[in-house]
Computed example of a mutant assay.
Amino acid sequence: MNTSPPPLTDRTALALHRARASALFLHEEVVAEVQERLEEVNRTFTAPVVVTGFPSLWSNFPTIADDDTLALQPAAHDLVIHALALHWANDPVGQLVQCRRALQPDGLFLGLMFGGQTLHELRACLAEAEAELTGGLSPRVLPMGEIRDLGGLLGRAGFGLPVADSFTKTVLYTDALHLMRDLRAMGEGNALAARLRRPTRRSVLLRAAEIYHHRFATPNGRIPATFEIICLTGWAPHDSQQKPLRPGSAAARLADALNAAETPLSDQKG
């Protein structure tokens, strides 16, 4: 009996969407962000690899597809970059574990993905419009993790020195329909396995656009779309890395560091 959960993503639909993509400015933003972060690391990487759905943007790096099973060999790389594809993964933790195993000791992992604030305006307006006109909701947008939760995944996957941070890009559009067309041009159309297999009613889209404009329009009548990009950074464990202190081994007490007076438990009131 197969007890594995049903797949989140229809990989065939995703591949078709990506093949038609023509507006890759967010992926280009990620390429620039990765280059900047690598310069700050100040290390020469000799065996890098990039996991991506758009290999043409990474001409300076060897690339592999973001398949469920990554084409990675154990301890073969000193740098693994997962480039704006983790949000489509059926098993994000499994992807991180595979990347961790592919790293040499003290190798670096950089994973950039859309975070939970991405398209929060569009998601809210579509949900309201659909509930209002049809009395229900259909799967439209990927579940996207929050930065705290995603940072915790690094530790679960076995990375040392895990860090999660994010940056936000706001893009202005003439209206919500323009935004939806641009999402398709990005290759980010609905590829959920549980999606409706018929076109969304035009009345729902027009009502969502109306709500979007009423709630979010700028003074000049354009509407903002938020894209949150979370960057996960982790290192394959190595003896040279800084280790967390053992409990009770701190050289100074917290109260001393904060210059605060301690109150005995017996003096505290419930």
Score class of each variant (00 low, 15 high):
1 M>H: 12
6 P>A: 12
14 L>M: 15
15 A>L: 10
16 L>K: 05
17 H>M: 13
23 A>D: 07
26 L>F: 08
31 V>I: 12
32 A>I: 09
40 E>T: 07
41 V>I: 08
44 T>W: 10
46 T>C: 14
48 P>C: 05
49 V>E: 02
49 V>L: 12
58 W>P: 03
58 W>D: 04
63 T>A: 07
67 D>F: 02
70 L>K: 06
71 A>W: 04
75 A>K: 13
82 H>R: 10
85 A>V: 15
88 W>Q: 04
89 A>N: 04
94 G>K: 00
100 R>D: 05
101 R>T: 12
103 L>I: 09
109 F>C: 00
113 M>G: 08
115 G>L: 01
118 T>L: 07
127 A>D: 11
137 L>V: 12
141 V>H: 13
146 E>P: 08
154 L>F: 05
167 F>S: 09
169 K>V: 13
175 D>Y: 04
176 A>V: 11
178 H>T: 15
187 G>I: 01
190 N>F: 03
194 A>C: 10
195 R>F: 05
198 R>E: 10
215 R>V: 06
216 F>N: 04
216 F>S: 05
225 A>W: 00
233 T>G: 03
236 A>K: 04
245 L>G: 13
248 G>A: 11
250 A>I: 06
250 A>M: 07
252 A>W: 15
257 A>Y: 15
258 L>S: 14
